[in-house]
């Protein structure tokens, strides 16, 4: 089943005099249950592409279809609501609400979705246990390591039962041990729960774990390799 279809997407930034062709004619499909890495040098357009996939940015031309819905047509609150219910996000940093505990951060997203107290409490504990933080549910982000914070972010991203999870360089700020740990958890969730992960990275070790590697350069896809 296709979760995402990208058709001839272009993104041109022209806020200054120079036009930047950040994404230049990309067409890609993603299936349910993929574990895909987008790689490429700095400035190649990875973040721009992921932002458009997540409905955070509009393509200049082309269409993006998520679960059969063309998201360029959504505006304002409708778009925010679409993100809330369909997409999980893990960012490089500033992922969590600093004044809330790990548990509250995960619960928050389900509260916005209107999930009942009983259900969200149960799910929060399950998710935090799944990312190996069952013991730290009442800690605030400042008292967690960078790796632990990113694991909370993964739990938070999954809390809303999204169609897929987007992660823009989730390991960029982590040491190698935390990187490996985070990747193992993502991989396990992908394998066991069939959750779709799409992430960008510079890190060769991260690339190694991916089952599909999409290489971009100058806003174009130059290779798309599926390993089996």
């Amino acid at each position: 089943m296709k979760v995402i279809e990208i058709k001839n997407v272009e993104k041109i930034y022209n806020d200054s005099e120079v036009k930047v062709h950040a994404v230049n004619g990309v067409s890609l499909d993603f299936e349910q249950g993929e574990f895909a890495a987008i790689v490429g040098p700095s400035g190649s357009g990875k973040t721009t592409l992921l932002n458009m996939l997540g409905g955070l940015d509009n393509p200049t031309t082309g269409t993006i279809i998520i679960g059969g819905k063309e998201i360029n047509e959504l505006k304002g609150s409708k778009l925010i609501d679409f993100r809330l219910h369909n997409i999980g996000f893990v960012f490089q940093s500033y992922n969590l609400i600093p004044v809330l505990t790990a548990k509250e951060n995960v619960e928050f997203i389900m509260q916005m979705q209107g999930v009942s107290y009983k259900e969200r409490s149960k799910r929060t504990i399950e998710l935090l246990e799944a990312v190996g933080l069952g013991e730290r549910i009442d800690s605030r982000p400042a008292r967690l390591s960078g790796g632990q914070q990113q694991r909370v972010a993964v739990a938070r991203a999954l809390a809303s039962k999204p169609k897929f999870v987007l992660a823009d360089e989730p390991t960029a700020n982590l040491d190698s041990k935390s990187t490996e740990n985070l990747l193992d958890i993502m991989e396990k969730l992908n394998r066991e729960e069939n959750i779709t992960f799409i992430f960008s990275t510079h890190d060769a070790r991260v690339v190694k774990k991916a089952r599909r590697v999409i290489t971009v350069e100058d806003g174009k896809v130059i290779s798309d390799v599926r390993k089996e």
Binding site: F91, S93, I97, P98, I109, M112, R156
Partner: peptide, 16 residues
């Protein structure tokens, strides 16, 4: 700004 950007990205609407 970054935190607010994150909140809006993950689905916190304008009203909230």
């Amino acid at each position: 700004a970054k935190e607010l950007g994150m909140l809006m990205a993950i689905g916190m609407n304008k009203m909230r």
